[in-house]
Write a protein that binds this DNA or RNA. Structure first.
Lengths: 338, 338
DNA sequence: CTGAAAGCGCTAACAC
DNA sequence: GTGTTAGCGCTTTCAG
């Protein structure tokens, strides 16, 4: 017997005692099973309510050692508006089905992601959703070994750990590259903030460069900051880039937030957009459809990605058929800034 | 004995067997305790690693029935940029200390919040962070009964369930009301999207109204949509409002996203801001410092709120002294739109 | 239809 | 220093 009296809440046995049945009956009633009279059901339910019974999911999940209804989800940055929408899509879909989402963020660092995964798998979640396809060997091992559904979102990968929902960032870059060439731009620059190993942003840049090179007008210059891709890095990044190459006629930004910062810089310097300089973003922030001109950008179906990831995860859990790789379409919105 | 073989991963006992010690020794080694030789420690650690041992936090938390390192956090909307920053502040502070954050969202509905709380407390978390002070009696009961730290963030409350970190939304509204009066505005309107029971947005409106009334120039009209407070509701809300009251000289918006939508409407109609019409937002989105003019708004220290909430929670857990109510300062940024 | 028994993996307490 | 025991609250299994 323990000296510390820890028991403070009613448990199945307490209810059983009061109701004059076994705790198995109580368990069955409370989980909506069958095999007892309506009278028993009503009595047990009432007593549970009266006693303020709160089931202990820890004990239940532990006893089962499966189906914990916990799902882990890790994103690069929680402050990104885009990931907020993805998270929302995931949470809506999963909470409706009785799952709980445990979040994490990794600053675009595969090592931080591994540390997070190590913590999370110890909770025996039903599944895990990761962002990107850049994972450490340790992460992959841990996850494969755990044998749970894993969905990699955001960036497409031909060989997912388990499943993937996303699109090709490289192709986004290619599409924008071709677009600016069609618009007659010939001296393109890039402003990014590729914090740590943000391979997705890098893939867009590579796609952009590839398309430009193929068209015979390779990327003129780039300015890559070691910072978070926000408004001010966009502003100052463009300032720096134009100081080196005042002749640029279009600049592709790492994302919309940075592009908006770039627009602000143009505004402050009297640079006319898109006449003097074209500005292109990426992501499709709602606020990017803002004055004075609608931003030229790639719109990503964030909520749909989250929803699809959640659905793939659940389908796999249920043993339903589901495709390993789900491609979601992005959309180039021409806007008025390029 | 069970027929289904469920055991797939190594547990303490497996390691103990291989290492030739008891599982208590393994437990102690792996948790960094003391009371064994360096040799034993090294051997146990190596074997655990070799066997790919993943501790079962479910079992540990269950055995302890305390200190689960799980923390629940519920926000009104995951898609709000502001809450993304709050979440980030919470997650950074807590994950550093070994906690896992379980998220939820409630659409500004106290009932949805209660449903979430009911799920979460069953996991016996170390604590819970809620947004706002509008909770059902059931939520309060559940939480008080669970006897765990609870932090209410975002809106100040004089009688928190347990602790609170925030500021007064009413005062934000008052401050803006006084500001527009000082700027000579006399016919003020309000455009909001008070989905469900968004009492915080309502409090700002009430403060705004109170300040205007006190100055002798009561609120002229308001347009409140039943929608999410985003860019487009701001755009169309202003259109509707101005159709009724073209003489308005300033409009206070529910938040920055809506205000930016309002700015876009003005832009599209050739309404000069701030000359013809003043526009005021709330929140302090980074993108609100965008062209062509910096938005007049109230900046909220979102990340600091999350950090403070996490710290208060942990302080209480450790039994350290901590204040029940923490006031964080908001800041009116005059901007150039009002 | 209902109950009793066993066990999930871990840790606190105490014995050696 | 190390091992033994008991138990956390629940659910599956199987006997009645």
């Amino acid at each position: 017997m323990r000296s510390v009296e820890r028991k403070t809440k009613a448990n199945l046995e307490d209810i059983a005692r009061v109701a004059g049945v076994s705790k198995m009956t109580v368990s069955r009633v409370l989980r909506g099973g069958s095999g007892f009279s309506d009278d028993t059901r009503a009595r047990v339910r009432r007593i549970a309510e009266d006693m303020g019974y709160v089931p202990n999911r820890l004990a239940a999940a532990f006893a089962l050692d499966q189906a914990s209804t916990l799902v882990g989800m890790c994103v690069p940055r929680l402050t990104s508006g885009l990931f907020g929408h993805v998270l929302d899509g995931v949470d809506r879909a999963l909470s409706r089905l009785g799952f709980q989402v445990m979040i994490g963020s990794n600053n675009h660092s595969a090592e931080e992601e591994e540390a997070w995964v190590r913590q999370i798998v110890a909770w025996r979640p039903s599944g895990v959703i990761l962002s990107g396809r850049n994972h450490t060997a340790g992460t992959v091992d841990l996850l494969r070994n755990a044998g749970m559904p894993v969905v990699e979102i955001w960036e497409l990968t031909t060989s997912p750990i388990d499943m993937a929902v996303g699109f090709s960032h490289f192709d986004c870059g290619v599409e924008i590259g071709q677009f600016v060439i069609r618009r007659g731009r010939r001296r393109a620059g890039f402003v990014g903030a590729l914090s740590r190993s943000d391979v997705m942003g890098q893939a867009r840049l590579q796609g952009f460069e590839a398309a430009l090179a193929r068209a015979g007008h390779p990327l003129a210059d780039r300015e890559v900051l070691h910072d978070s891709p926000g408004f001010y890095p966009g502003y100052y990044g463009l300032e720096t880039l134009l100081a080196r190459r005042p002749d640029l006629d279009v600049v592709y930004f790492h994302n919309d937030e940075m592009a908006i910062g770039g627009l602000a810089y143009c505004q402050s310097r009297g640079i006319r957009v898109p006449d003097d300089l074209g500005i292109v973003g990426w992501g499709g922030m709602e606020a990017a459809s803002v004055l004075p001109r609608r931003l030229t950008t790639t719109v990503v179906p964030t909520t749909a990605i989250g929803k699809a990831a959640a659905e793939a995860l659940v389908a796999r859990l249920k043993g339903e058929p589901c495709q390993d790789v789900t491609v979601v379409p992005t959309r180039l919105v021409p806007g008025e800034t390029a």
